[in-house]
Design a binder for these strands. Structure first.
Length: 945
DNA sequence: GAGTTTGAAACT
DNA sequence: CAGTTTCAAACTC
């Protein structure tokens, strides 16, 4: 702050001894860097290294390419996972073994195995982090542990959890023990299994199992889809459609890895899905296991004990791997003290790119989400309470491992991580969190997380820290961008963080989560760092948006070839001031440029490249202005982000392979149509729902919901392919602008909790449309809610389909308060930002925004929030048909509430959310079956309440 | 590696 | 708000 806005100039003038003695290395190495690197939009390629996040800076990273880094990193990620488990192979084997072993008698075990395997895949990566932080203790059972944790967490809340966990947990525990005992035997058994497999020609059986799984998955509501997509995306296998994921284990693991590495963003979006999916998977897994068992039986497969043993052994091994990973993570944390999270971050970034980009966005998100789930940890529990709905068993099921990790993640880490998602940032955040330093601790770390994080954290802290974590992350990211400059005051940061941070568990988990990524990423991380591309600024001192590092909210690091760089921790004040100045001019300046609308399922094909990324889901906020590149070169931001061009783009001769201008319009139309329907349906439902404050609160406050949502978005984005998109998506979600973070909680939690299904429905059904609608609704309230609403979390659907997932009323209250608080803060801060953003979008092109994607964008962005707040619903929004908007903003006069008070906003948001839920079902039909399923759940929840 | 092209960011 | 300039990345050679 010392530096007044002018300071930026200082750098210029003052020579720039930019790099002062500050050992760039430290910085770079510092978690912050990793975090930054991840976050930094900067090219993921090399970026990771030294980037450090700005204290106040948001997580612009989303927008950035950093995610791309993933590609490079991906390998590392992949390696990690692999390494972790070599686990992948192990998993696959395990899976197979599980199949083999699936003998009827052990269906339960099998289920656990499947779950574990699935989880494992994810977990391994994620787990690592989580496990670390939380504890290596959770040892073995990886997935199981997670499950157990989750179960515990969920406690009585989640029925599904109860259902799932019990078996899984028990089985797992047993199997784990057995496995552990028989580790040695396990290897042998593996071989045996293989032979037996061959002998048995399990093919059929396996096929049946897979089919069953797939079937289950497919059947499973949107969650499954979401999950599947994510995974797929992650793997790259991705069945074009949603479910590609039949291969739960590997796919998940890969997805996670990949996501973390490159797809993170897309996957993040997916991650949200993942959570849901995870939940679904859990339930499904159980079913699948049963089915498999049946099928196997039918097939005449005979599972010998040896097979079982083998399976268990595999599981145990996996677990061990995880543990090992976790240990590593823990060690890192312990030794480094969480510093390392960077690695995770990077990974994530890599994945996501970041997050989200998303870090492995997906992975990171997943991890984060997992961490959320982790609630097991003390703080986590709070989260758990919150999370249950989201993470509840279901999620745990698949992602248990993942989730659990997160549990620990707690708020800060998560938030940080999220912000970092993209990468290194997480580490930084972690450090800061641990240090409690946001206040003062490493500027870097603080800087990295930036204000956004702080805000988020603060909110989270207020909230109790628990729930927010994940959400906070997203929020943070989102908010970060907005807040980054202004809000960031460290002071706020401290308080917020400390509370949250203090919670060791959470932090660790977070860290772990990140780390998981990091741990995995760590390896990759290094790669990233090296590979990361950094800025090469010569005249801007790296204090302008020209600088990718700066734009990404990262400090420049060694990899950078910049000259006279002031974008260094040493010049934190200057950096912050500059940021603020820029934000003052353009609140969205640091916001993610790419927004994922819903999540498209992973149509994306190749996650890795992101080339196939589902452009449809993500779009560039402002749109490109290409005239000569035809949007076929990296000159085009849209193309660079692996997203399609939208109506908002002013490009000429657009040939964007990810999607050309016109395409988006169709979506709008659909949305508008659907919107109308939704509106009508919502109207009734919403009102009815609205009455149910509890739900609303839950949704709003449900932190879990928050995080999940964002992830989903992220995932949806590019997945792997597009770093920026990723980031953007992830960031987007998170980005303050997106409001998602804040809103996300709303939409996500409440709505999700209540309507997870609906969300899914929505998302799946109309990815684009749905988003809009949901956004509109969400926006109305909270702004970002829309995102959340959209977020897959909704999908997460509790197995129960119950809204009940929502934390206990008390918790909710607390959370709600916290959220409200956060909301206020956020809203206040964000509101401005959002408004700004909206002005941006809207302002710059109000019409456009409304019209085309803008609508979406606006919605997604913060526009909606503004709208909601101020009411002036953009015509578009209305057009969009988001009934919510119409009703919400203007009519009820709630507008004031929405705008002003978080509570009001929440209420409205709740209403919206609820409405959204009901409405979706109708819509869904068009969209996807999934949506329908989701609807059912959501409806149930809504109706039930 | 140097130079050109490109489009965003910044400025007027 | 539009137009111009500046900037750094992307691209080409």
């Amino acid at each position: 702050m010392d530096s007044s806005p002018e300071q930026p100039s200082k750098p210029n003038n003052s020579t720039h001894s930019p790099p002062l003695p500050i050992p760039p290395l430290q910085v770079q190495e510092s978690p912050v860097f990793s975090y930054i690197s991840n976050l930094s939009p900067i090219k993921p390629d090399k970026a990771a290294l030294g980037s450090q996040g700005f204290p106040g800076i948001n997580s612009p990273p989303l927008v950035f390419r950093s995610p791309h880094i993933n590609p490079k990193s991906q390998p590392s990620f992949l390696k990690r996972p692999q390494s972790a488990g070599s686990s992948d192979a192990g998993l696959s084997e395990q899976n197979e073994s599980c199949k083999d072993t699936l003998t009827v008698a052990e269906e339960s075990r099998v289920s656990s195995c499947h779950l574990s395997s699935r989880l494992r895949s994810c977990p391994q990566k994620e787990f690592i982090d989580d496990s670390k932080p939380e504890k290596a203790s959770s040892p073995p059972v990886c997935g199981n542990d997670y499950l157990t944790d989750i179960v515990n967490m969920d406690g009585g809340d989640s029925d599904s959890s109860a259902n799932l966990t019990p078996k899984s947990s028990d089985d797992v525990s047993q199997s784990q023990h057995e496995l552990l005992d028989s580790k040695e035997s396990a290897e042998n058994t593996e071989d045996e299994d293989d032979t037996r497999r061959e002998e048995m020609k399990m093919g059929a059986a396996s096929v049946t199992l897979e089919q069953a799984e797939e079937y289950n998955l497919k059947d499973s509501p949107s969650d499954l889809k979401s999950v599947v997509p994510d995974q797929n995306s992650g793997d790259g296998n991705g069945p074009p459609d949603l479910h590609p994921r039949v291969e739960p284990d590997k796919s998940v693991g890969h997805a996670l890895e990949n996501q973390s590495g490159g797809h993170s963003m897309a996957e993040n979006a997916g991650s949200g899905h993942v959570f849901e999916v995870g939940c679904n998977l859990l339930s499904e897994s159980l079913q699948v296991a049963q089915d498999c068992g049946r099928s196997l039986e039918n097939a005449g497969v005979q599972c010998t004990e040896s097979l079982e043993n083998k399976v268990h052994g595999h599981c145990a091994q996996i677990v061990q791997h995880q543990h090992g990973i976790s240990r590593r993570c823990l060690q890192f944390e312990d030794t480094q003290g969480k510093i390392i999270p960077n690695s995770g971050y990077q990974n994530s970034s890599g994945s996501v790119g970041y997050p989200r980009s998303p870090a492995s966005p997906a992975g990171s998100e997943v991890l984060e989400s997992a961490s959320l789930n982790k609630p097991a940890s003390p703080s986590n529990r709070l989260l758990a309470n919150m999370t249950p709905p989201f993470f509840s068993p279901q999620t745990s099921g698949n992602y248990n491992s993942k989730l659990p990790k997160r549990s620990g993640i707690g708020l800060h880490l998560n938030s940080i991580v999220n912000s970092m998602q993209m990468g290194s940032g997480a580490k930084v955040s972690m450090r800061s969190a641990e240090r409690g330093s946001f206040n003062g601790l490493g500027k870097k770390s603080m800087s990295i997380t930036g204000s956004s994080l702080r805000h988020n954290f603060s909110t989270s802290a207020n909230v109790e820290g628990v729930p927010i974590s994940d959400e906070s992350r997203h929020n943070e990211h989102a908010s970060d961008a907005a807040n980054s400059a202004s809000t960031l005051s460290p002071c706020s940061m401290k308080p917020l963080y400390e509370p949250v941070v203090l919670k060791p568990i959470e932090l660790q988990p977070n860290s772990s989560n990140k780390r998981m990524c990091t741990s995995e990423t760590s390896d990759s991380f290094v790669d990233f760092g090296h590979g990361c591309k950094r800025c090469n600024c010569k005249k801007t001192k790296c204090l302008k948006l020209y600088c990718d590092c700066f734009a990404a909210g990262i400090y420049c690091a060694e990899p950078c070839a910049c000259q006279g760089c002031f974008n260094r921790p040493e010049y934190e004040d200057t950096v912050l001031e500059t940021r603020q100045q820029i934000e003052s001019r353009n609140p969205l300046a640091f916001a993610p440029k790419i927004i994922q609308h819903l999540t498209e399922p992973p149509t994306n094909v190749c996650a890795e490249d992101g080339s196939h990324f589902t452009p449809s889901s993500a779009r560039h906020k402002r749109g490109c202005n290409c005239k000569k590149s035809k949007c076929l070169k990296k000159y085009c931001e849209c193309y660079q982000a692996n997203v399609g061009c939208s109506d908002g783009c002013r490009c000429e001769a657009c040939e964007n392979v990810y999607g050309q201008k016109g395409e988006f319009g169709m979506i709008k139309d659909l949305i508008s149509k659907h919107g109308e329907k939704l509106d009508s349906s919502f109207g009734t439902t919403l009102e009815s729902v609205a009455s149910k404050d509890g739900l609303l609160h839950n949704e709003l406050y449900n932190p879990h919901s928050l995080t999940p949502l964002t992830p989903a978005f992220q995932c949806s984005d590019h997945g792997k392919g597009a770093p920026k998109a990723w980031l953007s998506s992830g960031g987007y979600l998170q980005s303050p602008e997106s409001c998602l973070t804040y809103l996300a909680p709303y939409g996500m939690s409440p709505g999700q909790a209540g309507n997870p299904d609906t969300h899914n429905m929505i998302i799946e059904a109309n990815t684009g449309i749905m988003d809009l609608v949901s956004f509109g609704q969400g926006i109305g309230y909270g702004n970002g809610h829309t995102v959340n609403q959209l977020s897959p979390r909704c999908e997460v659907p509790r197995n129960d389909g119950r809204l009940a997932d929502l934390p206990d009323p008390q918790d909710w209250e607390n959370t709600s308060r916290a959220q409200t608080y956060a909301n206020h803060q956020v809203s206040s801060a964000n509101s401005l930002r959002w408004r700004r953003s909206s002005t941006h979008f809207d302002g710059t092109k109000p019409d456009e925004a409304a019209d085309f994607d803008g609508g979406l964008y606006s919605i997604l962005d913060d526009d909606t929030p503004e709208i909601l707040k101020e009411t002036p619903m953009p015509p578009n929004a209305i057009k969009v048909s988001s009934p919510n908007k119409k009703r919400v903003s203007p009519p009820h006069g709630q507008g004031t509430e929405l705008g002003s008070s978080s509570s009001a906003g929440l209420r409205t948001g709740r209403k919206f959310i609820l409405q959204a839920v009901p409405s979706f079902p109708p819509l869904t039909p068009c969209i996807d079956s999934k949506g329908a399923t989701g609807m059912n759940n959501s409806q149930k929840s809504s109706s039930g309440k």
